[in-house]
Structure formats: structure tokens, C-alpha cells
Amino acid sequence: MRTDQTVAPAATASAAPAPGGAPVRFDTKIAVLLREDLEPWQRLNVTAFLVSGLGTVSPEVVGEPYADADGVAYLPMFRQPVLVFEGTKELMAAAHGRALSRSLPSAVFTSDLFATGNDRDNRAAVRAVATDRLDLVGLAVHGPRNAVDKVLKGARMHP
């Protein structure tokens, strides 16, 4: 993950919800791109790891805490959907380059991380490989809708 990124502007709904429950559209998008050859358990694991970093650098994507009718408190979650896409190894590399060129907050998951067991070793595994040689299996990005759409050009929605 890049550490020299600027925090994206606050995510706002572009319009108030219309009467009758029309959907709210957000000015920003949270998206995860997964390599298409991952096993199902890997897809879930990679997605969870990738999105965990977004709220720390873009706190505006996190909503208010939840509580049930009995007053039991629950953690806050993202206030907008996370869209999950898939693509080839080549598409992963291209999307990564486009995310970097647009300075979008992003998180990466490389194939090397499947062989590590802790955060220190994860960071060391990424640090050991040059940017253009990372064997990416997952990428999460957050930013203006149109910029994220351009990063994900060619990707398809996860089935």
C-alpha cells in the first residue's frame, strides 16, 4: 500500500434519497479487484484484508456505529457498498498502474501473502518486491466514481 497518498475528499451522496426509496448515488466508489484464478476461500480472505485498510486512510467512508432495539452496540461499517470485480493477472497489473497514476488510496494483496502468517511478514513480503514485479491477486481502491471506473476498465463484476 502506498504511504504517500493524499486522503480522498469526503464521500457524499450526490442527491438526497427521492420519495419512494430511490437509491442514493455516492460521489465515490469503493471497489475490490480479485484475480480470477483464486479459490473461493482466497477470494473472501483477500477481500476482507484489502478493505480493512480503507477506513484508516479515508475515515469518511465509515458510517456511524449500529445498535439493535435492545441497545446492544455494534461496530460501524462502510456507509456505501463495496463492489467486487474480477480479472486476469494482466488486468490486475494494468489496474494497479492506473490506480497509482491517479494517486487513489489503494491496498494490495500479493500471492506471497498466502505463505505468511502475520502482519510483519506480510509487509516484509510486499516490501521485498519492486512495484512492477508484484504478483497481485487483489487490489482495493477508493476514490471518485469516474476515476475508480477508469482503474477497473475491463474488469467484470464478481459472480
Rank of each mutant, 00 (worst) to 15 (best):
R43W: 03
R43C: 06
E90G: 12
G87I: 06
E36P: 03
R145P: 01
D132R: 05
L83R: 05
D112W: 09
G87D: 09
A31V: 03
V62H: 03
G53A: 12
E90Y: 10
K150Q: 14
S52Q: 11
A93L: 05
R43F: 06
A128F: 08
P40C: 09
E39A: 15
G53I: 04
V72S: 10
T88M: 11
T47M: 01
V62K: 02
A67H: 13
L38M: 13
D135E: 04
Q80Y: 04
G63S: 01
F114Y: 08
T12Q: 13
A107S: 06
K150P: 01
A18V: 13
D132F: 05
V51R: 01
T56P: 04
P76W: 05
D112C: 08
L104R: 00
T3L: 03
V141G: 05
T6A: 08
V129C: 10
T56K: 13
A18G: 14
P65D: 03
S101Y: 04
S101A: 13
S14T: 15
G21C: 08
E36M: 10
V32K: 01
G97R: 08
V129G: 02
M92K: 00
L38I: 10
N118K: 10
M157K: 13
F85I: 00
L38K: 11
E86Y: 02
P144I: 06
P23R: 09
A128W: 08
D121C: 06
V51D: 02
G53S: 09
E39D: 13
F85A: 04
G87A: 12
V129P: 04
P65I: 06
A13F: 02
F109N: 02
W41T: 15
R43L: 06
R35Q: 07
K29W: 13
V61K: 03
H96M: 07
A73Y: 14
W41F: 14
M1P: 09
R35D: 02
D121N: 10
L134P: 06
V24I: 10
H142E: 05
I30E: 03
S52G: 10
F109C: 02
M1D: 08
R98W: 03
L134M: 07
W41Y: 14
E39R: 14
L134D: 03
A18S: 11
G55H: 00
L91E: 05
H158T: 02
R79F: 05
A67Y: 15
R120Q: 15
A15C: 11
A94D: 05
M157N: 15
E60M: 15
D112E: 15
L54M: 07
A73D: 15
V46H: 04
L152S: 00
A48R: 08
